[in-house]
Design a binder for these strands. Structure first.
Lengths: 369, 369
DNA sequence: GTTGTTCAAGTAAGCGCTTTCTTCAATGCT
DNA sequence: AGCATTGAAGAAAGCGCTTACTTGAACAAC
């Protein structure tokens, strides 16, 4: 029983345990790690001393010696605030990455790993070096959404296992993403064939995002195949943010552009902004204009009208990213490098596309490959 | 230039740098840490070799030697899923803690620290030992919302600095929380005096939560002072979750209870459930029943009707928790132990309490201490 | 010219573990 | 009884850093 209050006393070390148990530190280590087969009484004495002292091995020492930190670094992109907007404190932009991280964390725990989380500002000059520093505290790295340019990614992957999310795989890294293509095609077909809309628009995410590009391309394909008009381009950039979506609609209306029958947004977040801007102008959704999102964030259900979206199991995205990285760290991971892993998506029809939730249109549109 | 692809090659060590620069490892370390004053050419050669090799010191080795890991552990409570409800995949329950963590992370970065995040299930038998293990990977620990019982908290605080969030300070730990009392009093006065409601109810958060208790007490005080009826107790438990809020309302309606004129929820999340359940039964908000939340999560703005709530600067909560912990780790931190730090809150009036956002009732109600 | 001082740079100890190597008591065999 | 074999436990090396201590070159003072 220590008489100190506060963290004055150092935690016990393996030497303290060895002394208390009357054995060598090697024996303590062996008992704790199930190496060799210690005699029953040795084991017993060690365990007793460990319990007595409340010994837990120091992570740094263990990591140094075992060459395994049991930590993976996670880098998320800190959103740029678009100021002067309704949505200035748009903290929820981070909800998506946070949910992915949650998925990772739960799986990581099963393997005794923890997540070391760092957000970077892309504008930051030394974003790269900050990521490298994080890497030296970790056994592997998971990079969200394009936080590192290809050159540096390559250098990083040379030093330790790397998995990207919603990026592109390289020879040395794996990538995990939702199946954007089939998800978006399901949206497109539903709008075109089930609802019969003939004019669509695509509100893109941020520039260069592979997710946004793939989604846009899938939509364009389907529109072309059906001979339907699709608006897109500079005027239709939402930057994945509510403020961006709202701003785009405001600009279009101000410019007197005739809105399409349906607006397909690159994600739910920007759809929120679109809904808001349309409401401001008394434009009825889905009566005048239908709106769809992508991701099916929990908030999608609470919007009025409820938002039609494409569900990705966000936690699975994280879980898969971790499992992939883990196989690179601990297993051979040879089969995984360079792979682009797609997770299934599913259209979720709600009110905002024109469906009546009580009386859903037939399911068939949603399946067709 | 390495010819390897993938993480086959080990990152360079300080020995590699020393060899490349033709100096001893001590000199390298000194240059990198600004110790002593190396001669200009020594410094130059070291820096050159570091850049050449892309050397970054290993975190574990550094931590072991410097006795500082530059990592703080964060423990969040993993919500129990209430199953069979509308809100089964209620991931957004974690939005609040995640936003707090974001605030910590940003400040932590300024000090070169990273966050090691772990969620625990309270049911879990060994939750305690999992937290102790995390502790040994960190220089200090931040505990969200009652994840550890007082005994174990005490043992933990004996080993390293600990800060709690929305808990209670102990002799060795500090606690950070929003100013629940004044926030809730502002809500109460607004509902009672500005809107004239004479029957209220308090939908509590989870049992034993100091936040929930303080909020409930403040509301009860104000109700009593104004001679207003307040319902509370077993029937009014929301568990801080949307599903919990919805379930409570369902039960009350099923039991034929006459609803109060205003329902004051312990947080926004449970208010969402309440709004939902009321809508299901065709009960108008705020016309028939007014509803308020607490926290002012971003989602509060997107609900219909928009939710009146109490804003706490959630990121500040995290930032303050980190700064407090940091002062315990690096400074003397003597003044901080045992303190209970309250951050200001502010009433945000929206539609759900009966206010017309275009035509707000006078501000005065909101101020009075 | 000798001794003293200064200070950059090198040497080595140590942080707290894991793990290889070595020792040596206990067993099995001839 | 004498020797080989086994295997648990101890001794010690090292993981990659930081830092106290030691060395010795350069310069100042006598």
């Amino acid at each position: 029983m220590s008489q100190e209050v506060g963290s004055g006393s150092q935690p016990p070390t393996i030497y303290d345990v060895a002394r208390a148990a009357g054995v060598s530190i090697a024996s303590v280590s062996r008992v704790l790690n199930d190496q060799g087969n210690p005699r029953a009484d040795t084991r017993e004495r060690v365990l007793h001393a460990v319990a007595e002292l409340g010994f837990v091995p120091d992570g740094a020492a263990r990591a140094l010696s075992a060459r395994l930190k049991e930590v993976v670094g996670v880098v998320v992109r800190r959103p740029q605030w678009l100021d002067g907007s309704l949505f200035t404190d748009e903290d929820e932009n981070l909800q998506f990455p946070d949910m992915i991280n949650r998925g990772m964390e739960i799986v990581a725990q099963r393997h005794g790993f923890d997540l070391l989380i760092r957000s970077v500002d892309l504008d930051e000059a030394n974003a790269g070096s900050r990521i490298f520093a994080l890497a030296r505290k970790s056994d592997g790295i998971i990079l969200h959404d394009r936080v590192l340019d290809p050159d540096q990614l390559d250098r990083l992957a040379r030093q330790l296992p790397v998995v990207t999310l919603a990026g592109l795989p390289t020879a040395a890294t794996a990538n995990v993403h939702g199946d954007n293509d089939s998800g978006m095609r399901a949206v497109a077909r539903h709008l075109i064939h089930d609802h019969g809309y003939r004019t669509l628009a695509y509100l893109a995410g941020h520039e260069g995002s592979p997710d946004s590009i793939t989604r846009g391309r899938a939509l364009a394909d389907e529109a072309r195949a059906a001979g339907v008009t699709l608006q897109a381009g500079d005027a239709w950039q939402g930057g994945y943010q509510a403020a961006g979506g709202a701003a785009a609609i405001e600009r279009l209306i101000a410019a007197g552009t005739r809105l399409p029958r349906a607006i397909v947004c690159a994600n739910d977040q920007s759809a929120i902004g679109v809904l808001h801007a349309l409401a401001q102008h008394g434009i009825s959704v889905p009566g005048d204009v239908a709106v769809t999102g992508f991701d099916d964030m929990p908030v999608a259900r609470h919007l009025r009208p409820q938002l039609t979206s494409v569900r990705q199991s966000i936690q699975d995205l994280g879980a898969t990213a971790f499992e992939t990285l883990y196989s690179m760290i601990c297993g051979d991971g040879s089969g995984v490098r360079g792979q682009d892993i797609a997770l299934p998506t599913q259209l979720v029809r709600r009110r905002s596309c024109g469906c009546d939730p009580q009386l859903l249109v037939p399911r068939n549109a949603q399946e067709a490959g």
